[in-house]
């Protein structure tokens, strides 16, 4: 078991290392010299006079681009480990790490809640759909849910915004908290934040419920054909016990893999929803940074993305042996 843990953690570190290296290499492989481009832009704006070559050399020295590639690479790795991602170009001299960390709680709060909610409700719904003796009402409920999953979440977001934010204005349509509010650790703040999360959260939940339900339904149908379900019936177990401990419990295993993947992609998962609702999460900040050509912020967020995927995979690897005893045995 210790060997299994060490191997998995080692794997996660390796994935992070490769991701960082790619992140280092790609900007340097791109055509064009960013320093000269930058200077050209400044001079075009009329802000530059004097010797261009000298200015370029000074800028390279300041950014550390005059050092050998290997030294740059090691410095980059060292900085990344300390989460030193450089400074923002657009809102100089704010550190990139500060911008990223400010957006992270919003995204994790909104998308984490929405993803977990749609996973739980969708899987339960799908499992019930596959159960022969489930209430008939459920089958009718399933149709709109599946249809909604065919609608992209950002379209759903706009429709919800129009219905519940403008036609019948019960919920706020933009921002992460009430405009002008000074955040405090009190109930009013929490309520304000929760209210602002409803519409973006709902559009994500509604759009993904059907996917979870359909996948789960397929899994349960497969599991119900297994011999152990028949033996469970032959043992005279209650319907509830067979459904939960024999059916759902086994059908849920692949769903957990999906959940971990979804959680890994959380940071980038719903950029458009954050943009539509001007939600101050990572996605919105990425969108703004791309618009402002803020290279270091984009790079920092991309790094966070690969970090979160690696972390989610590690988490899955650590949890999976607990929910499926066969995995621990196979890889230990």
């Amino acid at each position: 078991m210790v060997g299994y843990l060490l191997r998995r953690i080692g794997m996660a570190v390796l994935v992070m290392f490769v991701a960082l290296s790619v992140n280092f290499a790609i900007p340097r492989l791109m055509p064009g010299d960013p320093v000269e481009q930058q200077l050209a832009a400044v001079s075009a704006a009329g802000g530059q006079t004097g010797d261009m070559a000298e200015a370029a050399a000074a800028m390279r020295a300041r950014l550390g681009l005059d050092r050998p590639l290997a030294v740059q690479y090691l410095a980059f790795l060292a900085n990344s480990i300390r989460f030193d991602l450089g400074v923002s170009v657009a809102s100089y001299p704010q550190p990139v790490a500060e911008i990223v960390l400010a957006g992270l709680p919003w995204t994790i709060g909104l998308l984490g809640t929405a993803t977990l909610l749609s996973f739980v409700v969708g899987s339960l719904l799908g499992a019930m759909l596959a159960w022969p003796r489930a209430p008939k009402l459920l089958k009718f409920l399933a149709l709109p849910v599946v249809v909604l999953s065919a609608v992209p979440y950002f379209i759903l977001g706009i429709v919800l915004m129009a219905l519940l934010g403008i036609l019948w204005p019960v919920l706020p349509v933009a921002g992460g908290y009430p405009f002008g509010m000074v955040p405090n650790a009190d109930f009013a703040t929490a309520l304000g934040i929760a209210k602002h999360g409803v519409l973006p959260g709902l559009s994500i939940v509604l759009a993904s419920l059907g996917t979870w339900a359909v996948a789960m339904r397929g899994m349960v149908v497969g599991v119900l054909g297994e011999d152990y379900i028949m033996l469970a019936e032959a043992k005279g177990l209650s319907e509830r016990r067979i459904f939960l401990a024999y059916g759902v419990r086994n059908a849920l295993l692949p769903q957990f893999t999906q959940l971990a993947l979804k959680l890994g992609l959380l940071v980038s998962g719903a950029i458009l929803v954050e943009v539509i609702f001007a939600y101050p999460g990572i996605g919105y900040r990425l969108y703004v940074a791309i618009g402002q050509k803020d290279v270091f912020v984009v790079q920092g967020i991309v790094m966070l993305l690969s970090l979160s995927i690696a972390l989610a995979m590690l988490l899955l690897d650590l949890i999976y042996p607990l929910i499926d005893p066969r995995v621990a045995a196979r890889s230990a």
Binding site: D227, M230, L231, R326
Partner: peptide
């Protein structure tokens, strides 16, 4: 079932709940 009439299943490989 099981109390008065019990089953020994065909597919022993798969007849027990794996989890």
């Amino acid at each position: 079932r099981a109390a008065r009439i019990a089953l020994v299943p065909q597919g022993a490989m798969n007849a027990l709940n794996p989890v």
